[in-house]
């Protein structure tokens, strides 16, 4: 029996883990959210990646909330109310994380400023003592 024939004989549809999503958009959001949330009991894994039992429970929870029409914000709030900001792989922008979020831009600005100043100084010096 060839694979193609096998394929033709069994044409039943997949059964998802729980209730199916109403739209492709919901499904996409579900998989995106799982990558943003951290599994608590694992060594640095997302809910998407973890094989832990708790992660499975939380996946089901997220699935149910997405299917329920909850917004990303509401789902994230649900998680942080229980486990704190630790579950967020993308830290919220708040006073304690200002440095984290602003550092890249500040460093880049600082670096470019340093480069500019370095050149001005360097040029002045090499003008006074020719090559």
């Amino acid at each position: 029996m060839t694979a193609a024939l096998f394929h033709a004989v069994f044409l039943s549809l997949a059964v998802a883990g729980a209730e199916p999503f109403a739209s492709a958009e919901q499904e996409r959001r579900y998989y995106e959210l799982l990558k943003e949330l951290r599994c608590l009991v694992c060594q640095n894994q997302s809910l998407s990646d973890s094989a832990a039992g708790l992660a499975g429970d939380l996946r089901d929870e997220v699935r149910a909330m997405v299917a329920d029409g909850k917004s990303d914000r509401e789902i994230v709030d649900f998680m942080t109310a229980r486990y704190g900001d630790f579950v967020l792989f993308r830290p919220r922008f708040r006073p304690a994380t200002w440095i984290l979020w602003l550092a890249p831009a500040a460093l880049l600005a600082g670096g470019l400023f340093w480069l500019f100043r370095w050149q001005v100084v360097h040029r002045r010096r090499s003008d006074s003592e020719p090559e």
């Binding site: 997302s46 993308r90 830290p91």
Partner: peptide, 15 residues
């Protein structure tokens, strides 16, 4: 002693 947070892939990709 401020908080326990995670900084993961979504943050790093964004920056």
């Amino acid at each position: 002693g401020l908080d326990k947070i995670s900084v993961g892939a979504p943050y790093f990709s964004a920056v």
